[in-house]
Lab assay of single mutants.
Amino acid sequence: PREAYIVTIEKGKPGQTVTWYQLRADHPKPDSLISEHPTAQEAMDAKKRYED
């Protein structure tokens, strides 16, 4: 089974940042970016789909 994890990042100019959620996995390479999402819920949904 595949495993993934969610990383929170800040995008934008200082003082005007927006939080994004990255879905990452250690396949095919360590810390590979799988997808980016504007909400934590979307990231969790993507994580479930990826791991299923």
Rank of each mutant, 00 (worst) to 15 (best):
E3L: 15
D26T: 10
H27Q: 14
Q41P: 06
E10L: 13
A43I: 02
S32I: 09
L23H: 00
R49E: 11
T39Y: 04
R2Q: 09
K11G: 05
V7T: 12
M44L: 14
M44F: 13
Y5A: 02
D45K: 09
S35D: 02
A46S: 05
D52N: 14
L23F: 02
Q41G: 09
R2E: 07
Q16M: 13
I9G: 02
R2G: 12
E42D: 12
S32M: 12
I9W: 04
E36W: 06
R2C: 07
P28C: 05
D52G: 14
T17G: 11
Q16C: 09
M44Y: 14
K11S: 06
H27Y: 15
T39F: 04
D45H: 09
A46V: 02
T8S: 12
H37K: 01
I9C: 06
K11A: 06
K47Q: 07
M44T: 09
S35N: 02
E3I: 13
V7N: 04
W20C: 04
A40V: 15
P1G: 14
D52A: 14
Q22Y: 03
M44H: 12
R24V: 08
W20P: 00
P14R: 09
H27E: 12
G15Q: 06
K29G: 10
S35W: 01
R49T: 09
E51T: 08
V18R: 13
G12Y: 05
Q22K: 00
T8Y: 07
A40C: 10
Q41R: 10
S35H: 01
D31S: 13
G15K: 06
P30I: 11
I34M: 04
P1S: 12
A43T: 02
Y5L: 03
I34F: 02
P30M: 10
I34Q: 04
Q41E: 14
V18N: 09
D26F: 07
H27W: 15
E42C: 03
A43M: 01
P28L: 13
P14W: 08
A46F: 04
P1L: 14
E51D: 12
K29L: 13
I6N: 00
L23P: 00
P30E: 10
A43P: 00
R2L: 12
G15L: 07
P1C: 08
P30F: 11
T19D: 04
A40P: 12
L33Y: 06
E3R: 14
R2T: 10
P30W: 08
T8H: 08
D31Y: 15
A46D: 02
I34T: 01
I34A: 01
S32C: 05
H27S: 12
A46P: 00
L23E: 00
S32F: 14
T8K: 15
P14L: 08
E10T: 14
P38V: 10
Q22T: 04
R49H: 12
R49Y: 12
V18Q: 12
R24E: 01
T39C: 03
D26W: 08
T8F: 06
Y5R: 12
H27P: 03
E36K: 02
K47W: 06
Y50Q: 02
Q22A: 04
E51Y: 08
A4E: 01
T17I: 09
E10C: 06
D26M: 11
D26Y: 08
E3G: 15
T19I: 15
E3C: 07
K11M: 08
A46N: 03
H37M: 02
P14G: 09
Y50M: 05
K48M: 12
A25R: 09
K48Q: 11
K29I: 13
E3W: 14
A25E: 04
G12M: 05
D52Q: 15
T19W: 06
A40F: 15
K13W: 14
K29Y: 14
E10W: 07
Q22G: 02
D31C: 09
Y5K: 07
E42Y: 03
Y50R: 03
K13P: 13
K47E: 02
I9L: 07
A40T: 07
D52R: 11
I6Q: 00
R49N: 11
S35T: 03
T39A: 03
P1Y: 15
H27V: 14
K11I: 10
V18H: 10
E36G: 02
S35L: 00
Y5H: 06
E42M: 07
G15E: 06
R49S: 10
K29E: 14
L23G: 01
R2K: 12
A4F: 13
V18F: 06
K11P: 02
E42T: 05
L33S: 02
M44P: 00
L23I: 07
